[in-house]
Design a binder for these strands. Structure first.
Lengths: 207, 207, 207, 207
DNA sequence: CATGAATGAGGGTTCATTCAT
DNA sequence: GATGAATGAACCCTCATTCAT
């Protein structure tokens, strides 16, 4: 008599994705072998085929899962002031980078790094684009609010904010957190925001 | 009668590194297997062991080779005006990204993306750091020249210029060149430079 | 329709060990490659990894298996009279040596001879020691029975009996059975036993 | 101008054999690869082919070399009293076993252990036989001298003395020197000798 | 829904051997 | 007589995948 009840199909699938994400964070896409993932889940690897037709499909679903979580983060950082919202998004990213036990930012770049033969980059780029579009929407909202200068190109701003996050991630990935510090990262973000924010909300630039 | 003459040790080593770099550019670090590299060179894979004691040593030598080439690029972009020098470095990088047949920028990021189990990230980060230091030196030169505001933090500026390059590279890697265009990349660079450059040389910011 | 039914885990494991033992007997430890063993079993070599985590673990399990069998032989030779028991053990060994189709004695020495880089000698020595201890126990039993002189050093006797077996094995291994005959082997054993046995049971020494 | 003169063919050959013997002692027959041997000699491995047509021929020559050295040891232990001579031979062997830096006894057994596919055992057995014959000759000399009982079978005695040495060697090989001590080894030898020696020269047996 | 057994392709590495120089 | 470059076969090991149960 098993006290631990059989998981439903959906629950199992979610569990697998969570474990897979952790595995990618710790061992990279390459290290996310079926054996490793299944071991984390506590099942045998052929059982994974009951949920995903192939490893690649699992990884694609994982990208979905990952971007869902990131988008939740972006949504959670919402503030009525668009500039503050962007700042919140940037800080959320920076905070995650500093917390390597988190399984969200690091796997993000692990996917960027996923070898070309995994055929994942295209899919990944498309999601990334959607993320940037979301940021651009925030910029546009700021322009409607009047907190962001109307002349600014929303996409350009969005990409730059996004790029700040990338820089953080890459630096962390390469063990350069001691040099590209959270402080410098924040200063770069403020710089970008400050140069387009109107009024008193914009911190002065000091480089 | 073989028309292809026997290569000398140094020639062969150089050839292997060139081929390996192309292979990394096309198939990633993971795809740079001994079989693939040897096939590109036109020899059998055990022959590689006559030149490198192991695959990892080959990859480490490749990182050396790669950074040598990048540093040459940076040096080649030299201009007496430090701001112009930084701009040249940024543009050189952007130009390379647009020319995917070049085997220099893409492999760069392939290494960033190299799976953790390859154990290359540490080594790579150290080289990266040296590169940033080089950029910071240019900034300091600009400060001595008076073309860069004295108040600026050279390391901060250096990292930001470097980060511009990263953004270009990653975007290209993910097939987003259509969105993160050369124009936007240039604008971001000008932004960074403009905000620290003194005098008329600094383009006005318009985002 | 496969007529050969799928084997259970335990059956397969046992079969692999049996085949491996034969392989060691015929081709030595070095010749006991995964390919060779798997071929004998009738499977492909990666399948072996489902049963043993590595070749070395397989070989260690094989040593277990081998000593189990030898200890069974020693136990099977039991006689109440300790001297007779020792004689039985010695004769059992000699008999095996003469029957090369047996896969027990020969592999024994193959392990002794296993190249140092296999790292098996230590483990093997420990088992060997246990075997000698078992013989020493028989000697002590004889001393309690009064069939073996009390003054004798049990360990010394045990080692000497064991050494008789070694001599047989090595001679067989080197194809010298024509010179170190079963008769001479028996005479050496009697010599050892005779010199410590009390009473009429001890055959006269004639060399 | 090389101050170290070119070695003559014979000198080089001897040097190679000496180095090869050390290599076998330290790393076994399997570890005696052409690369390892050549490295010890200070030349490159293809150069070995100038002296031996193949690795196997080198190993066969090495067996010659090894037995020559052992026979020298036996000769050096010569004493007019045959029993003393045999005792000297046994002690010489035991002494060597205790001195692992010596490259004579250990390689001996490394060859016994040489995997069957090396095809060396036959050759090795023949040499071994010659060695035993030499011991038997000493026994016969003792019988003529009257120091060994006439009734003894010279071959039997010779094999037993030889077997004592084997036991020492194997025990050392398996790291059991702590249990099969030099003292026990000596006692076993005295036992054998004592049981065939006549007169006062024979130590009393005490087991 | 899950498992256990097995596979085939591929990975890095080592080694005896050949041959032009 | 010796070298440097290269080869081909073999080794151990890993992994995604299949399939009967």
């Amino acid at each position: 008599m098993q006290t631990r009840r059989r998981l439903s199909r959906e629950e199992r699938r979610g569990q697998i994705l969570r474990v897979a994400l952790e595995t990618v964070a710790k061992q990279g896409v390459r290290g996310a072998t079926l054996t490793n993932i299944a071991a984390g889940v506590g099942i045998t690897y052929p059982a994974l085929y009951a949920h995903f037709p192939s490893r690649k499909d699992l990884l694609l679903a994982l990208i979905d899962h990952l971007f869902d979580r990131i988008q939740q983060l972006h949504a959670a950082a919402y503030q009525e002031d668009a500039v503050a919202h962007l700042r919140g998004i940037g800080r959320a990213n920076a905070a995650l980078v500093g917390a390597p036990e988190d399984d969200c930012v690091l796997p993000f770049f692990e996917f960027v790094a996923a070898e070309p033969d995994e055929d994942l980059r295209g899919e990944f780029g498309a999601r990334q684009l959607a993320l940037v579009e979301g940021l651009a929407d925030v910029v546009r909202r700021g322009q409607r609010q009047g907190t962001i200068v109307a002349i600014a190109d929303p996409e350009q701003i969005a990409w730059m904010v996004h790029g700040c996050g990338w820089t953080d991630d890459i630096a962390a990935l390469m063990g350069l957190s001691g040099h590209w510090t959270a402080e410098r990262s924040a200063r770069m973000l403020e710089w970008v925001l400050g140069s387009v924010a109107t009024g008193a909300g914009a911190p002065a630039q000091e480089a």
